[in-house]
Amino acid sequence: MNSIDFAISELEAMKKKPDFLFYKGNTDLLYRRKVSIIGSRKPYQYTQQMTHAIAHELSRVGTCIVSGGAMGVDAIAHRGAGSANTIAVLPCGIDLRYPAVNKSLLGSIETEGLTLSQFEAGFAATNWSFVVRNELVVALGEVLIVTQADEESGSMRSVEYALEMGKKIYVLPHHIGESEGTNRLLAEGKAEAIYDISMFVGRFGKVRSAIDVSDPFLRFCAMRPVYEDAVQKYGEKIFEAELNGVIEVQNGRVVLT
């Protein structure tokens, strides 16, 4: 189990900055542009689709997605981003994959992305540790996206952290009577709705046109492979694509431009 004293400015926004964090995975993700996505553990189908789309499109422009590894919106956000482009903040010891239903997902993130915890190995999640986890999720993101939340939910407590930290908050537009927590935020002018995913994602990077699915090389690069693996598979074609601006190398991985 590894631990590190992370010298990143985002943690300064917390009420009590952790002295160190336990981690598994790629700490380079901490120094990428990051967006936090949270929401209900029982999202509507609309919420599921939009959460996945937002996370996926943000990852395509090089933005790392931060969430809490929980069921529902959290898991969908992690999957939408892809394991190599996401940070899961745990409410338990770094050695525990909680909740069990997300065991496989968290294992993939440990290997390809990054899991973080403020808690010693073996520590089981408690009511208060979820609150601590939520503050760290919010602190790490440049902005907070809440795709669905009822009043008095854990997500709305996270919103309080975001407001205290001066973070911009974004939500999905929902019908009256649905996701009443986020609808209230809109009514009170505390959040901005995402009406167009492409326009929103454009604030974080260049939005690419659709990938030519008939080209296996572009499909391969869209998976953000490790640079050495890409060179081994495609050789000179990788160098040519980099020179022509088709790809970039970010943190040791190939990224389509």
Rank of each mutant, 00 (worst) to 15 (best):
M1K: 01
M1V: 04
I4K: 02
F6H: 00
I8H: 06
I8F: 05
E10Q: 06
L11C: 02
K17L: 09
D19W: 12
D19G: 10
N26S: 15
T27F: 07
D28P: 00
L30F: 02
K42M: 10
Y44T: 14
Y44C: 12
T47D: 12
Q49A: 10
T51E: 03
A55I: 15
E57K: 11
E57F: 01
E57T: 06
L58P: 00
L58D: 00
L58S: 00
R60F: 02
C64R: 02
V73F: 04
R79K: 13
R79V: 01
R79T: 05
G82M: 01
S83A: 15
S83E: 15
T86R: 03
A88Y: 01
V89H: 03
V89Y: 02
L96C: 05
Y98L: 04
S104V: 09
L105Y: 09
T111L: 12
L116C: 03
L116M: 04
F119W: 04
F123Y: 08
A124L: 12
F130G: 14
L136C: 05
L136N: 00
L136E: 00
V138H: 00
G141H: 12
E142R: 14
S153D: 15
G154A: 10
S155W: 06
Y161R: 12
E164I: 15
G166C: 05
K167P: 15
K168I: 14
K168W: 08
I169S: 13
Y170S: 08
Y170V: 07
S179D: 03
E180F: 06
G181M: 07
G189C: 03
K190Y: 11
A191H: 13
A193S: 13
A193C: 07
D196S: 11
D196F: 04
I197C: 05
S198Q: 13
S198M: 07
M199G: 14
F200W: 03
F200L: 00
G202V: 10
R203A: 14
G205A: 02
R208Y: 10
R208L: 14
S209K: 14
V213I: 15
F220D: 08
C221V: 12
C221I: 11
R224Y: 04
R224F: 07
V226E: 12
Y227C: 14
Y227R: 10
V231L: 15
V231G: 05
V231R: 14
K233N: 10
Y234E: 06
Y234L: 10
E236F: 09
I238P: 11
A241I: 09
G245P: 06
G245T: 06
I247R: 06
E248W: 07
N251S: 09
